[in-house]
Design a protein around this nucleic acid. Structure first.
Length: 576
RNA sequence: CGGGAUGUAGCGCAGCUUGGUAGCGCACCUCGCUUGGGACGAGGGGGUCGCAGGUUCAAAUCCUGUCAUCCCGACCA
């Protein structure tokens, strides 16, 4: 392709509304343009990259025995009502009505549709296992789209669904996908880590997320997930799922007797610990949440943090948020109290669920809110002064330095971009939607399902996050829009243009994806653009052409070498 | 949905306090000149100042409302 013909507009400056580097670079280098919040045009260069990623995904999915199909983007509400998700999916599901007022939605994922396909098409265990996938635009009406392609509302995703006759079969399908994913991301030039994860609204039990690890501290917060991983063994998990062995902490408040004392202006754990001159680990913290509209008081040791996903899961909830002050007032007055946040405690509360993290169990002579503003109960003990909640489970956020649940070594934390995930769904959808097959013994059984997603556009953006420098993008060869760009330094130098054109034509003949920068621009503009756009290799045709020499540049390390024309061509041919 | 900010030409911004013919840089078009790291000169085109009301002789500027975008939080296969 000649640059003079290519539809691309590079910008001299970064767009002001972009925050992360992949967003900034993709806009500035002319790959994408925003159409609406979280909705982007994929311009020709971007589309080439996307197709590269898609093809790698296709090749590996096909190799793994999956079959591609395409399901509708607009789906009828009936299927979602069957699965029960019409009610629980929330506002993220883009709902609309057709002209007959039938309720429809834009597909955020396709478990319902695929289950209906399997229900109609698979009758016998002899047809199993089956793995079907598609590559398609998805729409999720995210609360806050951001980071360009990393979190758009409309995005391209590969979603695959496996059907098996048994749990063993599912585990096998799962493992095959795991291996395929590892290869896919490797081929895209991305190192990933498969981490244990919460399975969220999709349901099911075992799931892993494939994370591109980005150890960005302040510079960049493209990695939206905190990943905990063991410094010694293979354990790693998303923070919403990670578990840990606690370091020992002081859990005895050493107060001689239980009494309610004045603790003015100690609305936070820090203030309270300071006021009482005790470590925060002898305070029992009480937080009020609203889970699916119901009030929940969660107790945790003062030095630890609640992991809200775990808390929500403890109640099999779909929606969780911290209670508003007016809701706390309502709870207080319903139980005959009038305390403000910071002084709340479980004792005497009516019409609320109480749950505790395991960390509170060993507290002795501890400090706890007693539903009186500016007062706390000190020297409290479970069973004597306050009831130990019946519901006790792990609802805490792991902290760096906690010990690994597998091998007791130190856990560390890093940021990750989730580019893919795999779920063992089990029978959640097949049961709900009555999708069954006849087993060997003649019994009707629900399919054992798995689902497997890869964010295609997010993967491309993640590649930019990982591969760029101050000058622009550095595409991995496998997903670059073009492999090489031929740049004549001066378009008015006839010899340079002739040689550049001839190199271009030779490479074209060899089937190589090559650009010729034939624009009537100064050298600086063309070279800057080549770096910004991130083409892996550059052949620059300049003054040295008098000696039959050209410059060969590798974008990845910005190294250049002087080669003869034929050497340069040969080098490119060998790479491709 | 809470907190904060911003909407002026394709992009980046000034002008608003103190109302009086809408500006700058880049990009774009023409001509000249230039060609190894985002040149230069001359000329030119492009904007209902987010939108709707209001105040005023007069509104980008002041007031009210509304919409959109961005950031933080909450939330999120």
């Amino acid at each position: 392709m000649r640059m003079s013909q290519l539809f691309v507009q590079t910008l001299r400056e970064f767009p002001s509304d972009a925050e992360v580097i992949s967003h900034k670079l993709l806009v500035r280098a002319g790959y994408i343009r925003k159409l609406a919040n979280g909705i982007y045009n994929y311009l020709p260069l971007m589309w080439r990259v996307i197709k590269k990623v898609e093809n790698i995904v296709r090749e590996e999915m096909d190799r793994a025995g999956a079959q591609e199909l395409l399901m509708p983007f607009v789906q009828p509400s009936e299927l979602w009502q069957e699965s029960g998700r019409w009610e629980v999916y929330g506002k993220e599901l883009m709902r609309l009505k057709d002209r007959h007022s039938r309720e429809m939605c834009l597909g955020p994922t396709h478990e319902e549709v695929i289950t209906s396909i399997a229900r109609e098409g698979i009758r016998s265990y002899k047809q199993l296992p089956v793995n079907l996938y598609q590559i398609q635009s998805k729409f999720r009406d995210e609360i806050r789209p951001r980071f360009g392609l990393l979190r758009g509302r409309e995005f391209i995703m590969k979603d695959a669904y496996s059907f098996d006759a048994s749990q063993e079969g599912l585990e096998k399908s799962y493992k095959i996908m795991w291996e395929a994913y590892t290869r896919i991301f490797e081929r895209c030039g991305l190192e990933t880590k498969a981490v244990q994860s919460d399975s969220g609204a999709i349901g099911g039990s075992i799931s892993h997320e494939f994370m591109v690890l980005v150890n960005d501290k302040a510079e960049n917060n493209a990695g939206e997930n905190d990943v905990f991983y063991c410094s010694k063994c293979d354990y790693s998990a998303n923070s919403n799922h990670a578990v840990s062995v606690l370091n020992s902490a002081e859990t005895n408040g050493k107060f001689e007797k239980a009494q309610i004392i004045d603790t003015p202006d100690t609305g936070s754990i820090d203030e309270l610990a300071k006021f009482l001159k005790v470590p925060s680990s002898v305070i029992c913290k009480s937080l009020v949440y609203v889970i699916d509209g119901k009030y929940v008081v969660a107790l945790i040791r003062g030095d630890r943090t609640i992991e809200e996903t775990k808390l929500m899961n403890a109640f099999a909830g779909n929606e969780i948020r911290i209670a508003r002050n007016d809701e706390i007032e309502e709870i207080m007055s319903a139980s005959g109290f009038s305390a403000i946040p910071g002084f709340i405690g479980p004792k005497g509360l009516k019409n609320v669920e109480i749950i505790a993290d395991e960390t509170v169990r060993e507290l002795k002579n501890f400090v706890i809110g007693i539903n009186q503003t500016d007062k706390h109960l000190i020297g409290a003990n479970w069973g004597i002064d306050v009831e130990l909640p019946k519901k006790i489970t792990d609802i805490r956020l792991v902290q760096e330095g906690d010990k690994c649940p597998c091998c007791n070594s130190d856990l560390k934390v890093t940021k990750g971009i989730e580019v893919g995930n795999i779920f063992q769904l089990g029978t959640k959808y097949s049961k709900a939607m009555n999708a069954t097959f006849t087993d060997k013994d003649g019994q009707e059984r629900p399919f054992i399902m798995g689902c497997y997603g890869i964010g295609i556009t997010r993967t491309a953006a993640a590649a930019v996050e990982r591969h760029h420098d101050e000058y622009g993008i550095i595409w991995p060869v496998s997903i670059a829009p073009y492999l090489v760009t031929v740049v004549p330094v001066s378009d008015i130098d006839e010899e340079q243009m002739n040689v550049a054109t001839s190199i271009y034509n030779k490479l074209l003949e060899k089937g190589i994806e090559v650009l010729l920068d034939d624009r009537s621009e100064r050298a600086g503009v063309k070279l800057k653009d080549a770096d910004l756009i991130g083409i892996p290799y550059r052949i620059t045709v300049g003054k040295l052409i008098k000696d039959n020499l050209v410059e060969f540049k590798i974008r990845a390390n910005n190294e250049t070498q002087t080669l003869t024309i034929d050497e340069a061509i040969e080098k490119i041919c060998n790479i491709s």
